[in-house]
Deep mutational scan, measured.
Amino acid sequence: MAAGGDHGSPDSYRSPLASRYASPEMCFVFSDRYKFRTWRQLWLWLAEAEQTLGLPITDEQIQEMKSNLENIDFKMAAEEEKRLRHDVMAHVHTFGHCCPKAAGIIHLGATSCYVGDNTDLIILRNALDLLLPKLARVISRLADFAKERASLPTLGFTHFQPAQLTTVGKRCCLWIQDLCMDLQNLKRVRDDLRFRGVKGTTGTQASFLQLFEGDDHKVEQLDKMVTEKAGFKRAFIITGQTYTRKVDIEVLSVLASLGASVHKICTDIRLLANLKEMEEPFEKQQIGSSAMPYKRNPMRSERCCSLARHLMTLVMDPLQTASVQWFERTLDDSANRRICLAEAFLTADTILNTLQNISEGLVVYPKVIERRIRQELPFMATENIIMAMVKAGGSRQDCHEKIRVLSQQAASVVKQEGGDNDLIERIQVDAYFSPIHSQLDHLLDPSSFTGRASQQVQRFLEEEVYPLLKPYESVMKVKAELCL
């Protein structure tokens, strides 16, 4: 049975990233139509530049190519590739079939990587351009969430054990800070992308030097003109047959890092959902379990974690691919890159769409948070109580021993009897502590235990987050809708 299948058929496997999760716009960027249309555009740009620099290419040939950029006979191309065992030459023939007058000058002087690699770089750039505003929107939604809850005390956790208090907004800023680093890295790697350009079979530009009869300047002009037509500021000066596969490492490393950030955020949300302090959106008709109707599973956060793990592992592909590119190139890269580049971007696209949807509907339960604080705060307040007693004339050592005994009794009630923490009640009825009984409410005010959390939130948002989001103001209103 021949390899390949009808990918629109229910009898043929289709990647869930495309069929179930990723956005239509990201799927289109990695589609065959987008790819092969870009090949034709690159052939047109090459012909236009070659004509401008004096090669015998007519206006009629150029116009014929322009008129057929979208006229792609995919069936013919597939048949040609089956016959020739070469995808680029299959599309040269297919393009030439609908451009008979231009057929002889299509791909003039070029090698397969002229269309293959340059198209990949265009796709990487455009895919990054799709991700950047999506990530900015996630940051914006979380920034709104953090600002609104900047002063809401909550129990902090280290080692997932109760620690000092923080605020809900401050905790959210930990998430935002990681995503801001990801946004900066995505922008950097996007701006650092260079075009492969017009380089020939081993990167020496020998074929173009021959076409222009040894004119170095025209060869350099050709490279520059096509690079500018493709919208790049610069091209690699040095290439082998391909652009260095280190570029793929750079791009997928940034995406993998984004995956790590999203995994951490969504894990926190899942843990908070278990504590009943916070939940992701839950639709009115949504079913959490087929057997347990009360369940409210954090399905979206779980999906993000599941896909983020996949995204983090994909960076190993370009690392290994770059390491086995012998001399000017081997074909070890080809099949692998067809999979890992598309999957990385479709996965990143999915987790950003999902995280935006989550961040637009996060639900906080202040009463649950308050109750958990009441359970733990008495123990945390013991040092403040000791200091207040010393100020009232008591002995630190005597007070410490009193607190120690009462704390152990209260802990026994919590752990052995399943009761509430009654340390404060014990202190309130103990005559030894009568000098500070009137101060206990103040000493137990949760806001006095959150330090500068709310001020940190305000400063972080104003100095770091809002300036970073400013270039994306025009796209901030787009909502994230999930079908599944």
Score class of each variant (00 low, 15 high):
327 F>W: 03
275 L>E: 06
43 W>F: 07
457 V>K: 03
298 P>R: 02
399 C>T: 14
180 C>F: 02
214 G>A: 06
150 A>T: 06
58 T>V: 10
129 D>Q: 11
196 R>Y: 09
296 R>Y: 04
91 H>W: 05
473 E>C: 12
51 Q>L: 09
250 E>M: 09
83 R>T: 11
108 L>Q: 01
9 S>Y: 15
416 Q>N: 10
263 H>S: 10
32 D>T: 12
383 E>D: 03
117 D>K: 00
324 V>Y: 09
81 E>A: 00
66 K>R: 13
461 L>D: 02
313 T>D: 02
249 I>Q: 07
32 D>P: 14
221 Q>S: 09
78 A>L: 09
393 G>E: 05
429 V>I: 14
214 G>T: 12
210 Q>Y: 05
437 H>Y: 08
265 I>D: 00
470 K>N: 13
473 E>R: 13
245 R>C: 00
146 A>P: 03
271 L>H: 09
205 Q>R: 01
439 Q>H: 12
36 F>L: 12
443 L>W: 08
145 F>G: 05
375 Q>S: 04
142 L>Y: 12
151 S>A: 12
234 R>K: 10
253 S>H: 14
5 G>R: 06
65 M>V: 08
379 F>N: 00
262 V>T: 13
10 P>Y: 15
185 N>C: 12
460 F>V: 06
424 I>H: 14
116 G>R: 01
109 G>H: 05
123 I>L: 13
214 G>K: 09
223 D>W: 03
201 T>N: 02
305 C>S: 11
84 L>I: 04
244 T>Y: 06
187 K>M: 09
437 H>F: 05
316 M>K: 06
51 Q>K: 10
423 L>E: 06
252 L>F: 08
301 S>L: 15
482 L>M: 15
290 S>H: 05
385 I>G: 04
290 S>A: 05
435 P>L: 07
425 E>A: 11
345 F>H: 06
430 D>A: 09
232 F>K: 03
147 K>F: 09
458 Q>N: 13
27 C>A: 14
262 V>H: 02
435 P>A: 08
405 V>Y: 15
357 N>E: 05
354 T>C: 15
82 K>P: 13
233 K>H: 08
103 A>Y: 02
347 T>G: 14
261 S>T: 13
351 I>C: 10
294 Y>M: 02
137 R>S: 15
455 Q>P: 15
356 Q>V: 05
443 L>P: 02
477 K>Q: 12
310 H>D: 03
129 D>K: 12
332 D>A: 04
150 A>W: 05
272 L>M: 14
353 N>K: 12
327 F>C: 13
351 I>Q: 07
8 G>T: 15
181 M>G: 08
314 L>K: 11
325 Q>A: 13
410 A>W: 03
327 F>R: 01
6 D>K: 14
188 R>T: 07
